[in-house]
Each structure stands twice: as structure tokens, then as C-alpha cells.
Design a protein around this nucleic acid. Structure first.
Lengths: 215, 215
DNA sequence: TTGATGTGACTCGGGAGTAAGTTACCACGA
DNA sequence: TCGTGGTAACTTACTCCCGAGTCACATCAA
């Protein structure tokens, strides 16, 4: 209708707005960036690659996020808020022991559906200086919660060694990461299926069948 | 004679051999490189950094290893041979279940003493193309062994789901990595202490006290 | 003297970051 | 209903620096 479309260059898009609002575009970039950062790590990821995958140009990223580090920080922030909120919510529930672990896993799987990179991004060994502080506080908050659950288990077993607590907490975090990583490699599996799978595995390992979480 | 050397600086060492044999120097470079690669990942590590930490110059590394990727591959190879040999040795023993897991951990901790990077290097998400094949075959050999042990546990619990086996194997590998990583952050702890710590933790988690390995 | 060990000083490509321009949407007045 | 500016969204085409890889040469043990 509007006249201008008459001799519009059908194939090649040139510069100029595409009618996408800044907020939407930022969201889209964050999603792509999070995925790529999680896959290759901060250093091995190039801004040009993110731009290409997002179907935009590099300067737009700099326009919206200032720098590669700024983009990474925003990704971390998104992931942090998402996960910490969910895990703190689960920690409020009055379940303990294995059932608490399962409930936490279940919540995280639900939150992570569609953006599984949010968990992986915290394990980046190549994160820039500025991100380290954020990363640390983020990890610390998650570990503070894990320590409580793990501590219950160890106390129950009569183990009061603080280093044992520290080590087992690290192990538990790692188990969590491994399950998420496995899930990412099996995209067809739903969060619900993951939770019931974890239930089975916990049962086999601990020799008990935990109560099924409300599915 | 040569004009510039007029005021020959007594302190600064210039070029020329330092009397170190190639084999020794290669070993030294591999050790430094493995450490740095494990810490920062392949991409985030610069050859110049490795050279500086080893107290030599960059071209010597290229002279001995051809390229950054070549150096990385050699590191992988060293780590692979070291660990696969030890784990296959342990797999020959006729212990099963938790005791087998403990025996494996014990052997690996002993092998890793002094070069803990050998385990971490396999988890590099930024590894170059050429290293990927090597990395995969390396991981696969370790996992083939892990699968047997994990399979015993699951079968015992009446779980015959192949995906469960796959997931739990990934978890077990991850537990292994976490314990090694924790150990690296606590350099004072001896391999023997690590093994007994693992025994305690396993006991707490599995609710049984496993037989102590021959220390 | 010869060959192994070793280095200073380069080249060159790739990726972070930038300057300046281009296009489309959207008020607002006539 | 139509221009018409103003501004937000977007790009091309750069600069610049850091790090991989190289070359020619220096030193020393035998």
C-alpha cells in the first residue's frame, strides 16, 4: 500500500531500523549471547559471532551493552536472578534431605527450560575480571543454600568435619551441574521427566525410594 | 667487535644454550603448559605466558612443539596415558561397588599428586578442533570403565534404563572431577588423606562404611 | 667447527571497539 | 491526507591492539 514498497530491494536488507523495540532486541541478544558464552566460554566467544547468530550487526551490541564484558555481565545477572530466586524459594519449603534435593532440582529444571545456558555460564573459567566478583557472589549465594542441605546429611551421619562439609558441598554442586549438562544434551527430555529420572537415580544410589514430588 | 656489545651486561642472560637437554626441557614445558591450560582453558592461554612462566622464550616452544595446538595435544596425551593406565589398572582388581570407586579414586589421587592439572584439562570447553578427537577418545575410554561400575550399582537397584545409566555415569565423572578440583584448592592435603576423606563422605552418603583400602 | 639450544625482533591475521552515515517509524502542523 | 522533521534503530567500513607464528642470529658443549 504505502508507495515506498514499490521498488523495495527484495533481497538485500540495508541499514536502518527493522522496527524492533530496544527491550525486545536486548532480550534476544541476551538469549543468544548466553547460549554461546555457555557453550564456548567468554574468551573463545567473539562478539561478531553473537551478532551473526542474532541476525544483527556488531555495533548494535556495543550500542546496547557497551562492551563484551558488559554483555557478559548482563547474561550473568539474568542467570543469577533467575536461579537464585528459584533456589531460595525452594529452600523456604519445609522438606529436608533427599526430598529437598529433589525439590530443588525440580524447580531448577523448570526454570531452566528453554534457557539451559543459565546454569552453565557460572562455570566459565575464562570469565573476565569484572565478572568475577559478580560470579563469586552468585555462586556463594547458591552454595550457602547447598551447605545447609549437605550439612543436614553429614550431621545425620555423625560427621562434623568442616572440610568434609566443604568438599561434599562442592560435590553436590557438581552433581547438579552434571545433571543439567546431561539434560542439555538431551533436549527432548522434559523437566518433569528429568525430575523423575533424578528420583530413580537417587533411589538407586541412596538405597531408598524418596517421596515423589508433586508433578 | 660487534658494535652493540661494547658494554656487555653481566647480569642479563642472552641467547644460547643453558645446558638443558631437550627431553628435560620438553617435560618442564609440558608441566607448565598443562597447569596454565587447565587453569584458564586453551583459548584464554597465551603461548607467551607459558614461555614466561617456564623461564624460556616463545620460539623455543614452537621449535619443540610446532604450534599451540601441538603443545595442547601433547599435554592431553600425557594426561591421558597417565590416567587411563591407572584407571585400567584399578579396573582389573576384583573389588566391586563402592569399594571399587574408592580404589579408583585412591589410585588417581596418587597419580595426580604433583600434576593435578591432568584431570582438569579434559574438561576444557575451548579446546581446538584437532584436540577434540583426542579428547573424545580419552574421555570415552575413561567413561567405558565408569559405565561398568555404575552399571553394577543400577542393576543391583533393579534399574535397567539405558538413559539412567548414561546420566548416572555423567554424574559419577562429575563427582570425580569435583573431588579433584577440591583437592587442587587444598594443596596441603595428601592423596592418602583425600582417599580417607572420600571414604567418610561415601559412608555418609550411602549410609554404609566401606572397607578401608590398603593405605 | 658443528650442531643443539636458545633468543630479539619482527610479520600478520583476527577480534574488540568506533565514527559516521542510512533507513524507518512517529509525532505534528497544514 | 499529506508532507516533514526528529529520533530511535541499524549498518558499513574503518582503527587498533594483542597474540600466534617466523626469521635470522647468538651462544655454548663436544
Amino acid at each position: 500500500m504505502t508507495s515506498a514498497t514499490s521498488a523495495a530491494p527484495a533481497s538485500v536488507r540495508r541499514s536502518g531500523t527493522k522496527g524492533v523495540a530496544r527491550a525486545d532486541r536486548e532480550q534476544q541478544i541476551l538469549d543468544v549471547a548466553g547460549r554461546v558464552f555457555a557453550e564456548h566460554g567468554f574468551t573463545a566467544t567473539s562478539v561478531a559471532d553473537i551478532a551473526e547468530r542474532a541476525g544483527i550487526s556488531k555495533p548494535l551490541i556495543y550500542n546496547y551493552f557497551g562492551s563484551k564484558e558488559g554483555l557478559f555481565e548482563r547474561c550473568l545477572q539474568v542467570a543469577s536472578e533467575l536461579l537464585v530466586a528459584e533456589i531460595e524459594r525452594t529452600a523456604q519449603l519445609d522438606v529436608v534431605g533427599i526430598d529437598r534435593a529433589l525439590a530443588t532440582l525440580d524447580g531448577v529444571f523448570r526454570v531452566l527450560a528453554g534457557r539451559p545456558w543459565a546454569w552453565q555460564i557460572a562455570d566459565d573459567a575464562t570469565a573476565p575480571e569484572v565478572g568475577l566478583a559478580l560470579l563469586d557472589s552468585y555462586r556463594r549465594r547458591l552454595e550457602d543454600i547447598a551447605v545447609v542441605g549437605v550439612g543436614q546429611l553429614l550431621t545425620l551421619a555423625g560427621d562434623h568435619d568442616p572440610l568434609d562439609l566443604e568438599a561434599l558441598t562442592a560435590v553436590w554442586s557438581s552433581v547438579f551441574s552434571a545433571l543439567v549438562a546431561w539434560w542439555i544434551e538431551h533436549p527432548d527430555v522434559t523437566p518433569q521427566e528429568m525430575t523423575s529420572r533424578c528420583g530413580r537415580l537417587f533411589g538407586a544410589v541412596f538405597g531408598v525410594v524418596p517421596a515423589a514430588p508433586d508433578a
